[in-house]
């Protein structure tokens, strides 16, 4: 579901947070917002991958509509009035982040991604300084069987970026998910250790797109894991051009 520009699309004008904008009607709210420096928070959205709409951090208000919409999956329309930062939205986002922090083990001080983590940044950006819901304290196995990479499910937020990049960009579909609800977990192949995977090409794209310290390079220590996603816009552009 990579969005390709269709011919003859109209250009529409609309408002985001009381500022006027214009964009092609096939662009989504988050694309326009980010292009113009409005940082609507999001975890699962990543330019170059298909829209997933699952983290719900990017929900915004549309004036006149009782429902909130996720800005990654909603296209702009003529005359639309969008609010991205009301107090209500801020409170919802903080709660969603609290839920994420309570779900698994996210202790920044001992994490390889400390200081370079999207979840950590979002918590700071949204002002989430306490987790009021109880921690689940569930222990997940770390899979270190791969020569180059490591997966630590304790840090996973189930954004599915790894699944999508592996399927849509690399074309290997090594990653998928098992279980449902709170027991959902990402897996490699048919829940085999990553190191034994037949389909994994070892390209490392999943590691680079992972927002947290769940997918990391072997041999990194606390705070050492920097992610590099420069390849993604290029590859998806080339893919679109074909």
């Amino acid at each position: 579901m990579i969005q390709t520009p269709t011919p003859n699309v109209r250009v529409v004008t609309f408002k985001i947070d009381d500022r006027d904008f214009s964009a092609r009607e096939d662009e989504t709210i988050i694309q326009v917002a980010w292009e113009n420096g409005i940082r609507v928070p999001s975890l699962c959205y990543l330019e170059g991958l298909s829209v997933w709409g699952a983290c719900r951090l990017c929900v915004v208000e549309i004036v006149g509509s009782p429902r909130l919409v996720s800005s990654c999956s909603t296209r702009v329309a003529e005359g639309m009035e969008i609010r991205t930062d009301s107090e209500r939205l801020q409170a919802y986002r903080r709660m969603i982040l609290e839920l994420l922090f309570s779900e698994r083990n996210h202790v920044c001080s001992v994490c390889v991604s400390n200081g370079h983590c999207e979840l950590q940044n979002l918590a700071q950006q949204c002002g989430m300084d306490h987790v009021r819901v109880p921690y689940r304290n569930k222990v997940y196995q770390v899979d270190s069987s791969h020569d180059l990479f490591r997966v630590d499910h304790n840090r996973c937020v189930l954004c599915s970026r790894c699944i999508r990049v592996c399927d849509e960009i690399e074309g290997a579909h090594t990653w998928d998910s098992k279980g449902r609800g709170i027991d959902t977990q990402v897996i490699t192949d048919l829940n085999r250790p990553w190191g034994e995977s037949d389909s994994c090409t070892g390209c490392g794209k999943c590691v680079q797109v992972c927002p947290t310290g769940a997918l990391v390079q072997q041999g990194t220590s606390v705070g050492e894991m920097h992610k590099d996603r420069k390849f993604l816009p290029y590859l998806s552009r080339m893919r679109d051009a074909q």
Partner: peptide, 16 residues
């Protein structure tokens, strides 16, 4: 138990 686990509010919210 019937949540699919895709979105955060339903997956973790119903648990909490």
């Amino acid at each position: 138990t019937e949540s699919c686990g895709k979105c955060v509010p339903c997956r973790v919210g119903t648990y909490q």
